[in-house]
Design a protein around this nucleic acid. Structure first.
Length: 315
RNA sequence: GGCGACAUAGCCAAGUGGUAAGGCAUGGGUCUGCAAAACCCUGAUCACCAGUUCGAAUCUGGUUGUCGCCU
């Protein structure tokens, strides 16, 4: 059976993925699936740099504004939705374009990684959290050494989250997550794809991030956060841990001055961009598209379309 | 012009005779159910010169620079 086509456009925050993705989708008769862990949420528009309806220019966008800020969301759900939308788009005879910066989500869909084996178990998880709080994460790490030595070796004793997940996995499946991961890593993609990663000079990317944060404030980010707070959303929700939201909530809570909060947003966004780049660097088969080596967006598009033709994804 | 203080990595900063804490930034990395999350790794010979000493970032003298006060 022929593999179905899939186009991915990723890159660090602030490079200009969104606007390019609309043009790309237009050019290839595609529809866009957002791979962004924060844009899924409603009422979070300015801080997540969502495209406006006009900017979407009639191209359907999925996984944007689909959930309320209190809704649970993770790679697992992302993958489920994305699969569904990809199929629907293919059925229409169109090409799905995944656009976004959450590398983990993209990977989960691109390689169709299996997450279903374990349902998450809140009670055991809570028990582990307790233990971690009381005895420290190195203690959990030593527990892990007994059930899954390989994982223990790969996970740093301080990395509580991953230790807990590994323990949870062991409990729920009575298997080892290290083995599961090893299996999953062998997967090849069920799609015929092109994985573009848009980049630009690091120093300029950072400048753009800084000025974009200022622009968000001008556009009313603080009011957006205030109204989320007024709706009752608290800082411990995953959605409220988004960049720009957690810092401004801290400011509203008198934990920070506004100036410090803004500087923090900029700094953490820069760190985030760096981590995104690290992620994409180790991803196999990515096509780096360095904005600096093109005169304008049209040229970038031309290049991408040429590559898509080479790969036989479009005619 | 005089008096005083200070001079340690890109920034902040410990260290007052025994061979340079720490934080931030920067750069690199891990990642397979919270990923805009979580975690890890990453650097100097102490303004300069001359002395004292077995040994100086730490003491002495000088040079340069910065800051404060005074005239």
């Amino acid at each position: 059976m022929d593999k179905k086509p899939l186009i991915i456009l990723a890159g660090p925050t602030s490079v200009g993925k969104s606007s390019l993705s609309v043009k790309l989708a237009k050019a290839v008769d595609g529809e866009i699936i957002s791979a962004d862990s924060m844009q899924v949420y409603k009422h979070m528009d300015i801080g997540t740099a969502k495209l406006t309806k006009e900017e979407m220019a009639g191209i359907p966008h999925y996984l944007i504004d689909e959930l309320e800020p209190e809704d649970e969301f993770s790679v697992f759900q992302f993958q489920r939705y994305a699969r569904e939308y990809i199929q629907r788009i293919h059925e229409k005879g169109k090409i799905p374009v995944i656009a976004g910066g959450t590398g983990f989500y993209i990977q989960a869909v691109l390689y169709d990684i299996d997450f279903t084996e374990s349902e998450s178990d809140d009670s055991y998880r809570r028990e582990l959290e307790q233990l971690a709080a009381e005895r420290g994460s190195p203690y959990l790490h030593s527990m892990l050494s007994e059930v899954d030595p390989d994982s223990a070796q790969n996970i740093h004793p301080n990395n509580k989250k991953r230790i807990i997940r590994a323990l949870e996995y062991a409990r729920l499946t009575s298997g080892k997550i290290s083995e599961h991961n090893k299996e999953q890593r062998k997967r090849t993609s069920p799609y015929k794809y092109c994985f573009f990663v848009l980049t630009k000079d690091r120093a300029r990317l950072y400048e753009d991030i800084n000025s974009r944060v200022d622009k968000m404030l001008d556009m009313g980010l603080l009011d957006e956060v205030k109204s989320l707070a007024a709706m009752g959303y608290k800082k411990d929700l995953p959605s409220m841990q988004g960049l720009g939201y957690k810092e401004l909530l801290a400011y509203l809570d008198n934990k920070l001055s506004l100036e410090d909060a803004i500087d923090l947003i900029k700094k953490e966004t820069r760190h985030y961009a760096k981590r995104q780049l690290t992620w994409f660097r180790r991803e196999k088969d990515v096509i780096w598209v360095d904005k600096d080596s093109f005169d304008n967006e049209e040229k970038i598009l031309d290049y991408m379309i040429e590559r898509l033709k080479q790969e036989g994804i479009i005619n």
